[in-house]
Amino acid sequence: MTQNVKKKVKELLESGKIKGFLGLCQKNGHIGPHLFCDPDDLESMVLGDEERPGDSRYPLNKLLIHIARSYPDETFGVLVRGCDERGLKTLYTWNQLNPDKVIPVGVACPQELADACECLRPYPEEFVEGERAEERSSASVTKISGLDVKDRFTSWMKEFARCIKCYGCRDICPMCFCNECSLEAEELIHTGELPPEIPIFHLVRAVHMAGRCIDCGLCNEVCPADIPLRTLYKKVADIIDEEFNYRPGYSEGKSPLNILGSAAEE
C-alpha cells in the first residue's frame, strides 16, 4: 500500500524539490512521525493504517509548523489525508505555514475510516494511494440535536464531568498553534479544579475552534475520558457553515470571524 507514496517521495527528494518528507515510520513495532531526508532510506515508511484503518494518525502538519519555523527557507513534503490537507489549507490562512514551502503527498482514507469519522471528504484533492471513499454526514450531531434542550445539557455535563484536564485535545490539535492558551488563562477559567470548570472549559475550546476546526478527530481519539469532542466541534463547523457559508479547509479564504465587516452569507 505504500509503494506509490514511497515512489513519489523518492522523486521529490532526489529532484531536490523538498528537503525532507514528514511522514510515518515503523520502528521496533511502533509507528511514529518521521522526517525522511534520504531518498534511499524510505524502507520504514508506513501510512498508519496498520491493524485498523487510521489507527496510527499523528498531527503531522502541526509538527510541520515547528520544522518550518526552524528551516524557513526549505520546502518540505508531508503525508496528508483529507483532513490533513484541510489542516494545511487552514494553517496557510492563519499564516502558520507557507503554501510555497509545502508539498503535500496525499492518501485517500479507506471507507471504514470514513464511516467512523463521519467524514465529509475522506480524501485530499490529489492522492497517490488508496481509493476515494464515500462521504458521510454527521449522524452524531443529528442525534444530539434531536434531544430536548435539558437532556442536551445533562448529556454534555455528564461527558464533560469525566474530563481530567490533560489538555490532550489541545496538545494534539493541529489547529492549536498558539504559544499561550486561553484554557490556562486564570482570568477566564478557574484553575486547580477537576474536572475543570464545566462546561466553560470545553465551551471556551469550542469557541476557539470556530472557523478553525478541520474535523480530523484527533482530539476525540486522544481523549482518555472518551469525551465526544469531535461531535461538539463538528457542530461548531456546521454552525459557521450555516451562518456564514464557510467551512475551514473546505472553503477558500479566511474565517468569517476574522474578516472585517460582514461576511459572505448563505
Partner: peptide, 27 residues
C-alpha cells in the same frame, strides 16, 4: 505580547484602522 504572538494575523485582519502590521523578520 511579542513573546506569545505567533503571527496568525487574526488581529491584523480585524483591525479597522490598519494599525497592526506583520513583521516577517520576527514572525
Amino acid at each position: 505580547d511579542p513573546e506569545t504572538c505567533v503571527g496568525c494575523l487574526g488581529c491584523l485582519d480585524m483591525c479597522p484602522y490598519g494599525a497592526i502590521e506583520f513583521v516577517p523578520e520576527k514572525g
